[in-house]
Design a protein around this nucleic acid. Sequence first.
DNA 1: GATGAATGAGGGTTCATTCAT
DNA 2: GATGAATGAACCCTCATTCAT
Lengths: 233, 233, 233, 233
Amino acid sequence: MAKRSARLEADPAFRPHEAPREGNVRNPERARRDILAAARQEFAAYGLAGARVDRIAEKAGLNKRMLYYYFDSKSGLFTAVLEAVYAELCDLAEQLDFETGAPSLLLGRLVELLFDHYDRHPDTITLLNSENLHGARHLAASPRLKQMSPAFRQRLARLIARGEADGSFRPGIDPVDLYLSIVGQIYFVQSNAATLSLFFGRDLTRRRVRTAWRRHVREMTLRAVCRPESLEV
Amino acid sequence: MAKRSARLEADPAFRPHEAPREGNVRNPERARRDILAAARQEFAAYGLAGARVDRIAEKAGLNKRMLYYYFDSKSGLFTAVLEAVYAELCDLAEQLDFETGAPSLLLGRLVELLFDHYDRHPDTITLLNSENLHGARHLAASPRLKQMSPAFRQRLARLIARGEADGSFRPGIDPVDLYLSIVGQIYFVQSNAATLSLFFGRDLTRRRVRTAWRRHVREMTLRAVCRPESLEV
Amino acid sequence: MAKRSARLEADPAFRPHEAPREGNVRNPERARRDILAAARQEFAAYGLAGARVDRIAEKAGLNKRMLYYYFDSKSGLFTAVLEAVYAELCDLAEQLDFETGAPSLLLGRLVELLFDHYDRHPDTITLLNSENLHGARHLAASPRLKQMSPAFRQRLARLIARGEADGSFRPGIDPVDLYLSIVGQIYFVQSNAATLSLFFGRDLTRRRVRTAWRRHVREMTLRAVCRPESLEV
Amino acid sequence: MAKRSARLEADPAFRPHEAPREGNVRNPERARRDILAAARQEFAAYGLAGARVDRIAEKAGLNKRMLYYYFDSKSGLFTAVLEAVYAELCDLAEQLDFETGAPSLLLGRLVELLFDHYDRHPDTITLLNSENLHGARHLAASPRLKQMSPAFRQRLARLIARGEADGSFRPGIDPVDLYLSIVGQIYFVQSNAATLSLFFGRDLTRRRVRTAWRRHVREMTLRAVCRPESLEV
DNA sequence: GATGAATGAGGGTTCATTCAT
DNA sequence: GATGAATGAACCCTCATTCAT
């Protein structure tokens, strides 16, 4: 049917659900994955209220009934999508070794790492906005989230400690505050790119502008955190 | 009727539409105002897609038909709400005199001014998020918005120029970049307070935490913008 | 207001309702006429159910409330329009003198007269169709209609009598039957021009095709009614 | 429920959707058929604009949602009804063998065939009137209609050719013109029976009157088409 | 005579969800 | 595991009509 052509084609590794062909093959894992990918796309594009279960099923190339089989409800599906988003966010910290190298350099790299993450996964933003609109109700009910953050926070604290120790960072920096300041700038500009571009007459979605913004956030952060002497470069 | 009890009670100055009772009827200006207030509340609480026209009418204490009489459509109503939000934002800049006083002091005051605005009008955030989810489609179609921003930007540029001139600011600060950095931090934490609070185990909505955050943003900004010497306080 | 420009401009003698200008002048007759003209246009274009009271008021350049003031209801307005349509139809017969001239010639002229009437007043057709869809309910309730037809019928009977008497018509022609056969052909082709054109691949609305059809109906009628000898031309 | 009693009872062969009861459910073909029958009845009775989707669903004994499941929209439903009407009309021509028998006799039979069709399917008329009110928009968009007419027209042309060849028909008869003249008389009287009956004081819906009209149309047609000599009966 | 504001019932359509197979 | 068919509540919006001035 025409439905197959409506599949999501963003994922390069994507292959239609019914492909194998030897009799409607049972591949539960893949069905789950397809549904989740389709749902993520839909929720990111329209928000929780604006998302349509029919469209998700169509994008996933599966019967609508299957969404309920695997995820219970639209709400359950949204929760699953959010968990995936959070898992990605937590993986981030592990991509950087905070133990070796100059703290100020590492901090700069962290900013870039975060920026690039939101740049590559812009749907993260609309998904989190949706969840916040609903008071984080879904995450609050999700048991998986609970053990996610501590690792993240610890690593950041360790970086700050090293920076303070070697005198390159100002004293008294709070890891959470620092994180919020960095991500706040990154997140806000991407989240509100449409209205801000209109308001300031500067297209904030253009590559070049984005790159400049990436540099700006790093500099803002370093200037605010590091001792002046350690920035003489 | 039961309708009256469902009125919006958030706005302290709010008085039900039929209240005065001295000739129950006919007050177009007030009807418009009531509808707009109710709509703003509803859109802020549920987003554009999640908002319900019936609820808005009920909150406004008016017949549902009146929403269409005054604002054409749900979409037109949303546009009107957004215009109000933007008008408030633009009024902000005029509340501060950037011509007299030490630039670094004024910059600090600006941060506080912006913070307090989002603090007093938290609905601004969810409304703007909704608009961005929809690609700023409503604002793009609104002629009123066009001439709103220039004033805002000019005043900021003037402050930076003065700061550079008297040597208190680093050179090369871009007014738009600076604005985005400041508001980004303010906006993000308030917008994502629900998920962040959960994630970091720190209730970011508490008054004391908010006040600390206000101070943090001001310091971050000043440290990043001002020359070290001019901050010896 | 913009409303004025939306006035019906078909009527060449049309002048906007508020024109006289010396204080919103009271001109009840004109208001009635304007409303009636607008209603006729609207009912003809959309049928009774499809017609919109708002559009009629707008076309008439008057407040909607006035429609009710003058015509009680949408239904009353439709009745008034129908009465006007019938009055025109009855005037028709009086435009032809059936007493002098060759009956076969007069019959031919009658066909042309009827054809031209429906040609000049195509709205007559959709209006009558609407009324028939509703079982002629409005006309049945209208006292004015009662005395309209007899004259029409009598005149036609007189023509047939003369034709029979001088031997040019076949005997036994019923005036009503004859009328129905003539108008049936005229009416049907105009009423169903859209579907028939599509079905037969022949654009029945073109002037030339319409003219040919006019001739065809006259010939069909004459051949069917007149004795062969009296058609030797 | 009370719903069942509201079923359409005009069609004698009609049986309620849930009737069989042996496994109450799941009969898509029948559901489609029931909806179509109910819609045809409703559209014929009230026109396109006057028809109510709720009533159609109720008559069909199905949930309103199903109309959209099967036919997309009210408009799509109307198109489907029209296609059925046209299919019936096209089947007509095939019910008569135009190759054998006297052409004048066949022509008379054709008139009767057409008359009887509109007599048995009076809804055809109001449905076509509705479609014409809307400029044949639905048929124009329907691909199925395109290949319907040619057969019809060819067969009629063949009859005329035979009549001309054996000298019983006058020369120069156009098949489409002939068809329009015949159907015009039939269609008009049935379509406008309500107003005409009122106007002429003759109840055109009575059986006897209808039969007389059937004879009249046949005679009108034969007299107009056939050579006088071939009608000496 | 004339008006803008207001109404409640109901318009077509779509929603997330479940049934029977 | 997977499906097409079915549901009822609710969606946004529009209707003809009337109120108060």
